[in-house]
Design a protein around this nucleic acid. Structure first.
Lengths: 197, 197
DNA sequence: TGCTAAGTGGAGACCCCCGTCCACTTGAGG
DNA sequence: CCTCAAGTGGACGGGGGTCTCCACTTAGCA
């Protein structure tokens, strides 16, 4: 590949990541091209379809996400591991408007192997957390889906509010997931005054 | 208005409500027209713009929603009132894909008077619930927004799953909102096996 | 420096959406 | 039954999206 082409390709990816994060996946290809200072044809030469650009743009984040999960799943403190999985993935979602959409859209396509392994590991983690007495017994692994989908709804908020809201939501939910609830940890303060008036 | 016209108008509204509920607000006008057995022009004769059709279609639900809230706000048992507001509005959202979008889109336009009154009443309810010792002291009225926005994210799930998920989410959150948390009420069982594989 | 394949940009084909226009049809009162 | 205003449907304009085509430019090697 020629040097200038490689540079263009990299710039396109950077710009795409920025715009997807700010404005979600429905930003037009033409906008990405303009901001990257190239023509539309250049985009389609490197990425035959918009979907392929999305996948490429988020590949890095997927890897990060995967390793975050894998690490947490290995945590000897099962409750801390569970908490970490939820907190980190939710933060990723809240910081990047496009990530959620890309994630759920690609999830079925991630080769079943990796998906099933993660899911199995998570199930094991849940069981360990229950056994350790920190996680309520009626917690279901599907509650992870519940949290992620609920958290994804927050991406309709303005960017700064989304992070604050996500942290507060996660704090509330984690509190419900705990078994004992001895002391109530106060949820993260929230500044949502701007939202809905 | 002529008899057949009145009938057509009614049928359009019914169909619009169905389709908005099933598929959200971005169902094309042409689809509504086709399913109602009329031409596009007939839609636009009765509803000058798509937005006006949306508003008209959801007017009834808005009224229901408003009265649900007003009733709950009057409840002498403040905690029960708060619970009811959250449960009922979330259920409305979960049952109707279009409702959330229509609600947030129209919320700024509902004449400021009604909006402010509801918001003031809710603030008072929150205060009463805190005073009664049932609601945690650091609960913010903005947490209502948080719950509604999070709950709205569930509408990306298939219809049946959305209701179950919403109920479980609300049960978890309400538990966190309670002050004492003496006994942990088990959350509603969840059947999300179909989701994300 | 000159050649050539790789690379490029912009016009435009194609599609889907909202909303309008206009020639045609029909309900219902006299 | 006749009339005509009210009602109707489908074609169409305008805008915005994805993706393609093609004449032109340029990097990189001999």
């Amino acid at each position: 590949m020629r040097a200038d082409a490689r540079e263009n390709r990299a710039r396109v990816l950077t710009v795409a990541r920025e715009l997807f994060a700010e404005r979600g996946l429905d930003v037009p290809m033409a906008a990405i091209a303009r901001r990257a200072g190239v023509g539309v044809a250049t985009l389609y030469r490197r990425f035959p379809t918009k979907e392929s650009l999305v996948m490429e743009a988020f590949a890095e984040q997927f890897a990060v996400c995967q390793s975050v999960i894998d690490d947490a799943l290995q945590d000897p403190d099962a409750w801390r591991g569970l908490r970490t999985v939820i907190e980190k993935v939710c933060l990723l979602q809240a910081c990047d408007r496009g990530f959620t959409a890309a994630f759920t859209a690609s999830f079925p396509d991630l080769h079943a192997e990796a998906r099933d392994r993660t899911w199995r590991n998570f199930g094991a983690l849940v069981q360990r957390a229950k056994d350790s007495g920190h996680l309520r017994a009626d917690f279901s692994p599907h509650d992870l889906t519940l949290v992620l989908v609920a958290n994804s709804g927050l991406s309709s908020l303005p960017a700064e509010a989304a992070v604050a809201a996500s942290q507060r939501l996660v704090a509330y939910l984690l509190e419900s997931f705990r078994a004992g609830t001895d002391a109530l940890p106060p949820p993260v303060p929230l500044s949502l005054d701007l939202v809905l008036r």
